[in-house]
Computed example of a mutant assay.
Amino acid sequence: MKNTIKKLAVVALVTVFASSFTAVGGEKKTVKTEESTIVWKGYKVTGSHEGTIAIKSGTLEFNKDKLVGGEFVIDMTTISSTDLEGEYKGKLDGHLKSDDFFGVEKFPTSKLVFKKVKASGKNAYNVTGDLTVKGKTHAIDFTISIYGSKATASLKIDRTKYDIRYGSASFFDDLKDKAIYDEFDIVADLEF
């Protein structure tokens, strides 16, 4: 009988001890993909181009009212320019979807998974996440602000880390005014 009581006491103690170090499950909020937007902007020596890309799915995770995680899948087949029209828009959109850039036939989605979230102000957070583009995953740091049921995130992405080297002066000489800068910007306006 004493052994049984001792065993039960040990099990209870281990359970209490383990649960005190286990994170309390947060509340996952689904991002409303139709009401959310992602705008990209890429830069070249002679100017820039910008456009949109759709969110396939996304969640933000909260513990009480604090952001603690998130995960997004981006539909790369929807990438398009908004600063051109007609034939030039068609050419750029097709080129962005080709293997020179995002290779959407082979890689139709990209993914972002939050790994570390740290509050940097009342509604602001610094996030480190794993970004997967064209089957390659690299850590990325960015900021996100939360206001009620809306969020805004800004990311600067080095495309060469994901084997997108077309027009990069880091890999090709004599590009002159045809060079495309390695980094591009993403601004996401989210509703959840």
Results as ranks from 00 to 15, higher is better:
residue 110 S to W: 00
residue 29 K to G: 06
residue 69 G to T: 00
residue 164 I to M: 10
residue 162 Y to F: 13
residue 67 L to N: 00
residue 22 T to N: 00
residue 50 E to W: 12
residue 16 V to F: 11
residue 192 F to N: 08
residue 155 L to F: 01
residue 23 A to H: 05
residue 178 K to C: 06
residue 47 G to S: 09
residue 180 I to R: 05
residue 184 F to Y: 09
residue 6 K to A: 13
residue 16 V to A: 11
residue 44 K to G: 12
residue 72 F to I: 06
residue 171 F to T: 10
residue 12 A to M: 04
residue 13 L to N: 04
residue 36 S to T: 03
residue 188 A to M: 04
residue 35 E to G: 13
residue 47 G to M: 13
residue 66 K to A: 12
residue 28 K to E: 15
residue 59 T to K: 15
residue 122 K to C: 06
residue 167 G to H: 12
residue 178 K to P: 06
residue 191 E to K: 15
residue 126 N to F: 06
residue 171 F to A: 02
residue 66 K to S: 14
residue 116 K to T: 15
residue 3 N to R: 15
residue 113 V to E: 03
residue 58 G to V: 07
residue 53 I to L: 15
residue 77 T to R: 06
residue 29 K to S: 07
residue 121 G to L: 02
residue 167 G to Y: 10
residue 171 F to R: 04
residue 180 I to P: 00
residue 184 F to L: 06
residue 185 D to L: 13
residue 5 I to K: 00
residue 23 A to S: 12
residue 189 D to A: 12
residue 30 T to Y: 08
residue 97 K to A: 15
residue 72 F to S: 02
residue 96 L to V: 02
residue 73 V to M: 07
residue 131 L to W: 04
residue 44 K to F: 01
residue 36 S to K: 06
residue 33 T to K: 14
residue 61 E to H: 03
residue 131 L to N: 07
residue 48 S to L: 12
residue 116 K to F: 05
residue 167 G to Q: 09
residue 31 V to R: 00
residue 39 V to H: 06
residue 66 K to I: 08
residue 30 T to W: 08
residue 176 K to T: 11
residue 147 Y to N: 14
residue 111 K to Y: 04
residue 64 K to M: 09
residue 134 K to L: 08
residue 53 I to S: 09
residue 75 D to E: 07
residue 86 G to R: 02
residue 79 I to G: 10
residue 53 I to Q: 12
residue 55 I to Y: 09
residue 13 L to S: 05
residue 124 A to M: 08
residue 175 L to T: 14
residue 89 K to A: 07
residue 27 E to S: 15
residue 184 F to N: 10
residue 87 E to L: 08
residue 60 L to R: 04
residue 91 K to T: 02
residue 76 M to N: 03
residue 178 K to R: 14
residue 106 K to R: 10
residue 177 D to C: 03
residue 60 L to P: 06
residue 42 G to T: 14
residue 72 F to P: 02
residue 44 K to Y: 02
residue 110 S to R: 03
residue 95 H to V: 14
residue 140 I to R: 04
residue 22 T to L: 07
residue 3 N to H: 13
residue 93 D to P: 00
residue 12 A to V: 13
residue 4 T to Y: 10
residue 161 K to F: 13
residue 11 V to D: 06
residue 141 D to A: 13
residue 28 K to I: 07
residue 131 L to M: 13
residue 155 L to I: 09
residue 107 F to Y: 14
residue 34 E to Y: 03
residue 45 V to K: 10
residue 181 Y to F: 14
residue 11 V to P: 02
residue 46 T to C: 09
residue 42 G to I: 14
residue 55 I to Q: 03
residue 177 D to K: 11
residue 78 T to E: 05
residue 166 Y to I: 08
residue 135 G to Y: 10
residue 190 L to V: 05
residue 38 I to K: 01
residue 184 F to C: 03
residue 128 T to A: 13
residue 102 F to R: 00
residue 138 H to C: 08
residue 73 V to S: 10
residue 38 I to W: 05
residue 54 A to T: 12
residue 89 K to H: 05
residue 109 T to L: 05
residue 129 G to N: 07
residue 191 E to P: 00
residue 178 K to I: 11
residue 87 E to Y: 11
residue 149 S to W: 10
residue 78 T to Q: 02
residue 102 F to M: 03
